[in-house]
Write a protein that binds this DNA or RNA. Structure first.
Lengths: 104, 104
DNA sequence: AAATTATATTGATGTCTATCAATATGTCAA
DNA sequence: TTGACATATTGATAGACATCAATATAATTT
């Protein structure tokens, strides 16, 4: 899938989006759930916008259920992207890290 | 040092800056050297601007020599930041990665 | 000291994007 | 089919930031 470090970094480079990612870590949430978790910080269209960005970067898994869409973090993809960054910008240390993309 | 994932991601989220990081990986270069490596893509003040951003994120090591300043990528810091991302957003995989901050 | 070289800073400008209000689309219930 | 609910899309706006030209600072040389 997509492992472009620029795309990856741009998606990460927003506070609200990282907050959403935190809430989606190890958990499936609907869009409305995410809106609630953010407690009025932003409203629904903004959350949808961020989820779309995450989807385009393949950083979320999606499951449709009735009229709701459930999202969770795609940890495997995130691991791959971090591995790409490591090999590009920290090759002296990357060798000492388990070949991450071989795990998932 | 600074391991704020937002700061880290924002610094990475620029194409020119990642290009500069690539040139500074495993190599010490002066500001003028970096300008040359970019082959006219941007000019010197812009390079200085990017290097300052990298410095603020502790992502470069700096050595002054005469009137030149030499920069190289801080691979240890980059490794730590990737580790922080992994623990925050891919905890299911982070355990399978060597405790990175214990290396350097 | 004056000139030259290397890098940093400042101010202006254009582009990108996060955000919102409003609306559209899609799905289920009655 | 109509209404209600969940999410997505659109258009507008404001703030952030990459870039440049011009200038300042700092270090070396003559």
């Amino acid at each position: 899938m997509n492992v472009d470090p620029i795309v990856f970094a741009k998606v990460l480079a927003d506070e609200t989006r990282q907050e959403i990612m935190g809430h989606l870590c190890c958990v499936w949430l609907s869009v409305g759930d995410v809106v609630d978790k953010l407690g009025g910080k932003v409203n629904q269209p903004t959350v949808s916008h961020h989820l779309k960005k995450l989807e385009e970067a393949n950083l979320v898994l999606i499951r449709q259920e009735g009229r709701q869409r459930f999202y969770t973090l795609n940890q495997a993809q995130l691991t791959i992207c971090c591995g790409t960054l490591m090999r590009a910008f920290a090759p002296n240390y990357a060798d000492q890290v388990i070949a991450i993309e071989d795990i998932g």
